[in-house]
Design a protein around this nucleic acid. Structure first.
Lengths: 211, 211
DNA sequence: AGTATTTCCGAGTATATGCTCAGGTTACAC
DNA sequence: GTGTAACCTGAGCATATACTCGGAAATACT
């Protein structure tokens, strides 16, 4: 019988590394985890494989993690941190007061490129990792993305007569997420993504302004 | 090492049942597969578990399927058939010439209710089964949904001055899929789906008519 | 009824993966 | 240098799952 539900302790770290070499070991394990997920999928991920790819012994793996799921959780945490850093960097040098549509297109492009960069890893995480939605890092990311969008709205509300209906914000996030997911993970490469992103930004902007 | 890629033969049937009792056995296995996926997830699915829940012996399982993935493939095939049947039934008694928005809302509601009915099973299939997108039944469903939408458009094109941009059809399918997926599989139960579906239908109709 | 065919059974084997533990190695403080 | 703590090692045991195979039981055919 396989596992049914997951406890918080499954995703915790066993011991925090102190010395430099042990930090390197932990980092190597996380990177090995990412490589294995990309190349062999979640079914191909095992603690033994992680140890082998990371170049450490199996004993060291269990020194710092209670199991493979904790390593995956750590990997997701690092990826979320990358997204957060990118988002904050972009926010700093964007003035959406000038042109709402351009700002929207700008962020769609940035998120799209980041997703493309981790294409295969993202595919495995989304479509194969059973507990992805229950990971603290994942839930935190969703909250922060909403906050960024809300903040952007408040920022521009002075300039535009924003009259979005109550459900518009929800429709926007799910539509954008659904389109980006399909574009990055499902759609054939034949389709030209830039044009689609143009059209998406345009329609989202229209929803905001016209309600 | 886990499995990396899947061959077509992994999803094929080994032997077609002839007698009535063997048909019942195969059916029991597929239903057992669905129940285990709902209750224990993909990680909890094993051939031994399927045999036990179905009330047949492990030998019988391998008499008709090369492995558990073939049973999952068969299950997906049956579910796609259910969607197809529902869709055709609705299409027969809908006259979208009268009111495009009502027709849109009608179909959104129908698809939403069908997804809700198989909520947990759908969640496991989408977020845990690694090869779902490569299943013939899945690919076929995507094609047919596009065809239904296109047919509906042709049907109503005479009445309305449809001027959808080239990318609108793509944005529509991904937006609708993304919103329904989130609504059914992720959104908290507190959320009122009917109002969201109203808003979604309205916006999709507007995209069609106004481009 | 007798025979052939289909269907079913389940103990048993092979293999993969999780995880431990006793002991070796490296880094650091004094 | 010496002692202590941190870090690392990997053979090996426990467990779970995939899958086989010889034969029994049910069904169909004539």
């Amino acid at each position: 019988m396989g596992q049914i539900r997951w406890k918080v302790s499954d995703f915790a770290v066993k011991k925090e590394p102190g010395q430099a070499r042990s930090k390197a070991s932990v980092q190597a394990m996380v990177q090995a985890c990412a490589r294995i997920l990309e190349r062999r999928g979640y079914a191909g991920l095992s603690t033994n494989a992680i140890a082998e790819v990371a170049g450490v012994s199996i004993g060291s793996v269990y020194e710092y993690f209670p199991g493979k799921d904790a390593i995956v959780a750590r990997l997701v945490q690092d990826m979320v941190a990358e997204v957060r850093a990118m988002l904050e960097g972009r926010l700093a040098l964007t003035d959406s007061r000038n042109d709402l549509n351009s700002a929207m297109r700008y962020f769609l492009g940035a998120i799209y490129r980041l997703m493309r960069k981790h294409r295969e890893l993202l595919r495995v995480l989304v479509f194969q990792v059973p507990y992805l939605h229950q990971l603290p890092a994942t839930r935190q990311l969703e909250i922060e993305l909403q906050q960024v969008l809300m903040a952007g709205l408040d920022y521009t509300r002075e300039q535009y007569a924003l009259s979005a209906q109550p459900h518009t914000l929800y429709l926007m996030t799910t539509s954008v997420a659904g389109t980006l997911m399909h574009l990055v993970l499902v759609a054939p490469p034949a389709m030209e993504p830039e044009g689609i992103l143009d059209a998406l930004a345009e329609k989202m902007t229209a929803w905001l302004i016209e309600g």
